[in-house]
């Protein structure tokens, strides 16, 4: 993988990337608090520990490019520029939610930001991302689709169908595997034939095997940008496997106790956010600059939380709306 085509990030870009990662972290922590306070119902899957990926990939994309996320998709949605308040409100089931409360935590979508859905059936969205990429190819735009998925998705049929399909049609799609080592309660390597569940399968589809440090936003950005450039140039799909770790359990109901303490400690030491903080100081940013970024983010999270809480409960008018393109739900005359 040549990174020659990638524009290096300047200090201001990196400060922005720090802001993005810190905002994703603070959003997720607040989402967890709101769950404990019973504002957030149902389930939610947090990206705490994995923020460098959503932030780094978004940095490599154009506003008219498309992302396809999983049910663990708060970070990926926000990283594309979707405001926090409607996402909090969606988690709370309010009418001012991103989808007026009709989708919930696992299905965040904002077409105007290129966030083409979050999908809660493992692997289902890989073929769908192929379809968007096909559409860009057919219409002669140079848009690119990025499809995020977890390590567990690499053992489902749709993953393999999509990779072959993208390869034979040379589609402008990037498959991005966030390998956080664990499926739900089972270690992925215990149920997978190869050590690197995505990268070791790439050669079966004529793709380069690419592994990145998923806790390093700069590396994620650079490798993604190179793959995006390749896709835009009509050179076809790529697959990236990023090694990372979720600090918490799989979902809100899971304390994650099945993981060895030393493994958790090892990965907490590689937390992408303090790591990036230190890097920025070494590269010439001042502590005051970083503190100001953090203060502004915390304030924005507070404001967005209150805005979301102030939203109305969705009413019956929404219930029967938008099954069909005509806005209605009628199935008979």
């Amino acid at each position: 993988m040549s990174l020659d085509v990638v524009a290096p990030l300047l200090l201001d870009d990196k400060l922005d990337l720090y802001r993005s990662q810190f905002a994703l972290r603070q959003f997720e922590k607040r989402a967890y608090d709101l769950f404990l306070e019973n504002y957030v119902k149902g389930t939610s899957h947090l990206s705490i520990g994995q923020e460098a990926i959503a932030a780094g990939v978004a940095r490599a994309m154009r506003p008219d490019d498309w992302t396809f996320a999983t049910y663990r998709g708060h970070a990926h949605t926000l990283a594309r520029g979707v405001p926090m308040a409607p996402v909090f409100a969606e988690l709370m089931g309010r009418a001012n939610g991103l989808m007026a409360g009709k989708g919930g935590s696992m299905h965040l979508t904002s077409v105007e930001h290129g966030v083409m859905g979050s999908y809660a059936i493992i692997g289902a969205h890989l073929p769908i991302a192929c379809g968007a990429a096909w559409s860009a190819q057919y219409r002669g735009t140079d848009q690119v689709a990025v499809c995020f998925f977890g390590d567990g998705s690499t053992n489902i049929g749709a993953f393999h169908e999509a990779l072959n399909f993208a390869a034979i049609w040379k589609l402008p799609v990037i498959f991005f595997c966030e390998n956080n080592l664990w499926m739900e309660y089972t270690r992925t390597t215990e149920v997978t034939a190869v050590a690197n569940p995505a990268a070791d399968r790439a050669s079966a589809y004529g793709l380069e095997s690419i592994i990145v440090d998923g806790n390093d936003a700069d590396e994620v950005y650079a490798v993604t940008a190179a793959c995006v450039a390749r896709a835009r140039a009509g050179e076809g799909p790529s697959m990236i496997e990023a090694k990372t770790y979720r600090h918490g359990g799989h979902s809100r109901a899971d304390p994650g106790k099945y993981r060895p303490d030393e493994e958790v400690a090892e990965w907490l030491a590689k937390d992408p956010i303090p790591r990036y903080h230190q890097r920025l100081l070494a590269e010439g940013a001042s502590e005051a600059q970083l503190v100001e970024i953090e203060r502004a983010v915390n304030e924005a999270v507070d404001v967005a939380t209150e805005e979301a809480k102030a939203g109305a409960v969705p009413g019956e008018d929404l219930l029967m709306k938008d099954v069909w393109a005509n806005g209605g739900a009628e199935w008979r005359n």
Partner: peptide, 26 residues
């Protein structure tokens, strides 16, 4: 062949591709 395309035996890929294409204007 750009508008009429043979696919592999991959029904999930066929319908996923149709869905992704439809949501982006085809």
């Amino acid at each position: 062949p750009v508008r009429v395309r043979d696919t592999p035996i991959s029904e999930q890929a066929i319908l996923g591709a149709a869905m992704g294409a439809a949501m982006t204007g085809l």
